[in-house]
Design a protein around this nucleic acid. Structure first.
Lengths: 341, 341
DNA sequence: CTGAAAGCGCTTACAG
DNA sequence: CTGAAAGCGCTTACAG
């Protein structure tokens, strides 16, 4: 039974080349097992017919797809873009294809996407961070598909991870802020629920604040989705207080960009009137006015190493090794001492 | 790595539920065909066993995957991010999963990715623009997989498209620039080879320049990959001339951001000393200093409509209708008249 | 080096 | 409403 516009199959190739389907399959998958003149003829027929293997059939029969899936929280804001680009380049060099989907920071959607990717035969998975639904964690364990968490180092997490210590990095940044003499801090954080990176960063702020002898209870923390407009609004609210902060620490560069924008609109000068810091060091950070003090994340290295590790897990069946990378404070013009008044 | 604890199959479910595989399949795909008590029992077993359908097998048997693939030139710069987000949301509402991959603006990689996506059973494809290799165009035609081009309206292209007229939009922007009295224009364009959007934009500049009675031969055009650093370097070079331009028109906002950055470093004030314009109106454009005059692209609407059109093509087998959307000039602080000297 | 054949895990007419 | 069975397009021991 052939459909009208039938796509050629292995069988068609075999028939017109006068060989068995096994031989055609071998020409594609282990050409060294086929003698040259046979192989040449088969490859010609393949070209002539415009044959491409049916992936589903292949996956089902061979039980591998040379596909790696990644589920990231968002494709906007370029937070993950650079790391993912490096990840993809490295996979490609290894003969693997990357398929990406995004969860919009919604655990339910993340679960769907993970299942969709596994169902589509992903040989391995790159995920971001460690917070996820119980059901999907269990699903992953049952499935046995190798998975790696990036962007967040955790020593004892369920999945091996390649990332940095968000808490420690943010603590270092905050220490720099405090060392300049700021005592009135404000925080604009991402949503911490379901986002361990955001949560760890707030913890890092708290660590530094407490260690400096200040009371975290006196530090206003606004949680809002990562977005320029939200950062602007939060900044606006923070500065409305009777004694507004002299330094606003933001959970990432996107929120900080919003804060800077709001400052401009409110006639507040940064860093003279108030300091602002970010996190991530996306390209944007360096071109804002003033340039943003932030934490530099080793995006590309993280992507590359994640790819290598995941490929090793997939190909050699080894357990992924957790690796901690460094994220360093990057001082720029948006941070200065508090106004002497 | 295959786990010894083999993943349950349809057959396992059927056996332990005491029904045929056909019935289990129906519970999943057309539950209304199964009487309630049977269905209930089967669904319980499915849950208990943690069964998930094998996608490859399903795709092969059913010949559809509810998957849409997209190949975009880059995940960086957020140029496509917003539109893609809307595209994905709309697909999701329709029960489809989006899988994305990026080509790094390399036609060869685009070809690979398209094939990979089709091989993986994508029911339809979203591509960007109209320039692609002969082989992949032919492949698409042979394959018959519905495909749609976005981000670029072309009346008579091979693929139906949902997009705007890059040429006309850039012409309008340039007319605004010229209307202010600028006669010395410089252009920083993306790489036009293999990128019809970039090419059309330069044509649009040429249209306006020529219509204004100026000679395009006198307009320096630098082509460089979309990237902040490249934009900065190109701006630097442009301003090195004996009679530097009084207005620099950039192929997109990312290049313009680089130009603004370079201007700052060179002590050139925008727009007093030189005007700078972009294209795309990504979120960045509004928060730069000064805010960027640019062309506003209807990202979200484009994404949504692309999804609806593609879904119609996939589900109803209809031919996609080409739609032209409006991209409007958006005037902001980075553009002013030339310095009166 | 090559082929015949089983099997991968599903869906879907076709019967009943 | 449900089942038996063919078929989807490949890969891979197993023989020869």
């Amino acid at each position: 039974m052939t459909s009208n516009r039938s796509v050629p199959t292995l069988y068609d190739v075999a028939k017109t080349a006068g060989v068995s389907t096994a031989t055609v399959s071998r020409c594609l998958n282990s050409p060294e097992q086929v003698v040259e003149h046979t192989r040449k003829r088969v490859l010609e027929v393949i070209n002539q017919l415009g044959y491409t293997p049916n992936f589903g059939a292949r996956a089902m029969a061979a039980k591998r797809t040379y596909t790696i899936g990644a589920v990231i929280p968002t494709m906007e804001n370029a937070i993950f873009a650079r790391g993912l680009q490096a990840f993809q380049e490295e996979l490609r060099a290894g003969g693997y294809t990357l398929l990406v989907s995004s969860s919009a920071y919604d655990p339910q959607i993340e679960e769907e996407q993970i299942k969709a990717l596994i169902a589509r035969g992903a040989d391995g998975l790159l995920l971001i961070g460690h917070d996820r639904t119980k059901t999907v964690s269990e699903f992953l364990r049952k499935q046995g598909t190798p998975a790696l968490a990036a962007w967040s180092y955790e020593a004892d997490a369920e999945l091996p991870s390649i990332g940095f210590d968000n808490r420690r990095a943010m603590r270092s940044l905050t220490e720099e802020v405090l060392a300049l003499g700021h005592t009135r801090i404000g925080v604009i954080s991402g949503i911490t629920d379901g986002n361990d990176r955001a949560r760890r960063r707030v913890e890092g702020i708290s660590d530094a604040v407490t260690a400096a002898g200040l009371d975290m209870a006196g530090v206003p923390v606004i949680e809002t989705p990562y977005d320029i407009a939200n950062g602007a609004e939060a900044f606006h609210n923070l500065m409305q207080a009777d004694t507004p902060p002299t330094a606003v620490i933001c959970g990432n560069d996107v929120l900080a960009a919003g804060a800077l924008k709001a400052a401009g609109e409110m006639g507040i000068e940064v860093p003279r009137d108030v300091s602002v810091t970010g996190f991530d060091d996306i390209e944007l950070a360096g071109i804002l006015t003033p340039p943003l003090t932030t934490v530099h994340v080793p995006h590309r290295e993280m992507g590359r190493r994640a790819a290598r590790t995941l490929l090793a897990m997939v190909q050699k069946g080894i357990t992924g090794q957790t690796v901690q990378l460094e994220a360093k404070v990057c001082l720029r013009g948006s941070l200065a001492g508090p106004k002497a008044d």
